[in-house]
Computed example of a mutant assay.
Amino acid sequence: MPTLTPTRKRILMGIVWLIPIACVVWWATKQEAPRFPSDAGGIVALVGALGLYVVATLMRAERWDRILRRADVDCRRADVYALTPIGYMGNNVLPARGGELLRTFLLGSRAPGSTKRTILGTILAERVLDAVALGVILVVLASNLLGELPAPNMTVVLAGVAVLLLLIVAAAVALLKFRERLLFVLASLKPMAQPTRQLLSGHGIALLVLSLAVWCVEASVYIAVGRAVGIELGLQDGLAVVAFTNAAALIPAAPGYIGTYDAAVIFAVNAVTNAPRSAVLSYLILLRFVLFVPITIVGFVLLVVRYGGLSRVKAAREAAQAEQRAEHEAAAAAAAATRVESHADTAASTA
Rank of each mutant, 00 (worst) to 15 (best):
T29D: 01
A253L: 09
E327P: 02
V139E: 03
R66S: 13
A82F: 05
D345M: 11
S201Y: 07
R197V: 15
A61K: 02
P152K: 09
I43S: 00
I123P: 00
P195W: 00
I295S: 07
D237G: 09
A240W: 01
F289G: 02
A263M: 14
L284T: 15
A319Y: 00
V272I: 11
E327R: 10
R325Y: 00
A331V: 07
K9M: 06
G234F: 06
L101S: 01
A22P: 00
R76M: 04
I119T: 00
F292Y: 15
E148F: 06
K9I: 13
F178W: 15
A348Y: 08
T118A: 13
V209A: 15
L182K: 07
S349H: 13
V24I: 12
R325C: 01
G48C: 08
L145V: 15
L102T: 05
R306K: 10
V163A: 15
T115E: 01
D79F: 02
T346C: 06
C75D: 08
V225R: 07
S114G: 06
L106T: 01
I21R: 00
I168N: 02
A125S: 09
A142Y: 02
A187Y: 10
A240F: 05
A28R: 01
V80E: 04
E126Y: 03
V25R: 01
T346V: 10
S278T: 09
P34F: 06
A279Y: 05
A45T: 10
C216S: 14
L167P: 07
G99A: 04
A193Y: 08
L235E: 06
S38Y: 03
F184R: 15
S114C: 02
A336Q: 12
G48Q: 05
E100G: 03
E180W: 10
A172S: 08
G299H: 04
I67F: 01
A142M: 04
L183M: 15
E218L: 06
L158D: 13
L120N: 01
E218T: 13
L18K: 04
P252A: 11
S282D: 10
R179H: 14
V293F: 12
V305C: 06
P112M: 01
R8I: 08
S201C: 09
V47D: 02
S349K: 15
I15T: 11
R35N: 12
S201T: 11
A249K: 12
I123M: 09
A331M: 13
L124V: 13
A275L: 07
L94A: 04
L287S: 12
G230A: 11
P276I: 04
A228C: 08
A332V: 11
Q321H: 10
R110A: 03
G299K: 06
A319N: 03
I258G: 11
I11S: 07
R76F: 00
R10Y: 08
V229S: 04
E329S: 06
A131K: 05
V265M: 12
L138D: 07
K30N: 12
F289M: 05
A45R: 05
T196F: 06
L52P: 00
A111C: 12
R8N: 10
K314P: 00
V265E: 07
C23E: 01
V340S: 10
N92H: 07
